[in-house]
Nucleic acid binder design. Structure first.
Lengths: 167, 167
DNA sequence: CAAAGCAATGTTATATTGTTACATTATAAC
DNA sequence: GTTATAATGTAACAATATAACATTGCTTTG
């Protein structure tokens, strides 16, 4: 696991996160034989501007106007997000209607997302433990899962320190 | 765990599910000292008409007109759903923007929701196993979780039999 | 290179889901 | 009964997402 994947709740040089994400993205798209166009890369950069998930319309607002000088329409950003999600570069957080960059694209597509309800920063963990623990119960039910994504709201270490919250 | 909580993917007398849910709801509301008004009960019944989650506007369509003969507004159904959720009688499935009755209200508020992508029926399991398996990793991160709800899309035993799907 | 075919983007309109604010009515407490 | 509070009605609107069709731009191949 790359170092950048455990940094959401620590001070770190975020440029490295961004650069790493873009490098990974270019590599993966080349491997998959698909095009990381300028717009797609722009949206990916916008998603990666922080470890906080971004709404589609927030991203839209930040997209630069096209050559005609007009602001892009929602479709634009949704298409870019669809592409990035198909190739595992971005995740959608259903509990927030928001999107966040994947710190280790191409490795596994499951994941546990720790979402701080205070600062809204998100840390992605591997979903392996959850999958393991769940598998026997699913077998009991005869249920065949597609994936094991999970969103866990709570308080991150940083915010707990600052506010003194204990729960 | 009551028998009704393991029946979503089996043929069963669904009236028992409905009756049980209403009985439980009345009991719980009395215990909590809150009012299960007619509208709230109506919405709860509508949610429980099947093991398939219902969208808020689907519920709204089925709500009877008031004494003035006019159809209720969205607020109406959202308020009822908010109430039912606050008291653990109904869950919201974020991945579907839809609502489903809780088969064991008042027991635990976590849960794993198996969602069949074919028939869209939902089976709720206990979230204990998931919580257990995740706890050490959360401790590693210093993260204090609020809850452990999880939505797992997949294929239920019934649909797998019918379609021969293997994955 | 030119033309064809396909991928990506532009454009417009609309669907779906959910909320805010304020008025009115019903229930409970005194 | 009167008052306080909870519940519901009503109207407008905000936020998120999709559909349908036109246009532009790559890229492949003759």
């Amino acid at each position: 696991m790359s170092p950048s994947s455990t940094l959401a709740y620590q001070t770190h040089n975020h440029h490295q996160c961004i650069d790493g994400a873009l490098r990974e993205a270019r590599k993966l798209c080349q491997q998959h034989g698909v095009r990381l166009t300028e717009q797609r890369e722009t949206v990916l950069k916008l998603v990666w501007q922080s470890h906080q998930p971004m709404g589609a319309y927030d991203l839209l607002e930040q997209l630069p106007a096209g050559r005609n000088g007009r602001k892009p329409a929602p479709t634009t950003v949704y298409r870019a997000l669809d592409f990035l999600r198909e190739h595992g570069l971005v995740h959608r957080l259903d509990s927030l209607n928001a999107y966040i960059g994947c710190p280790h694209p191409g490795q596994h597509h499951d994941g546990v997302f720790l979402i701080c309800r205070q600062c809204s920063r998100v840390q992605e963990l591997s979903g392996d433990a959850v999958r393991q623990s769940l598998q026997p119960h699913l077998a009991d039910q005869g249920f065949s899962p597609d994936d094991f994504r999970m969103e866990v709201p709570g308080i991150c270490p940083r915010c707990r320190q600052q506010t003194g919250a204990t729960a």
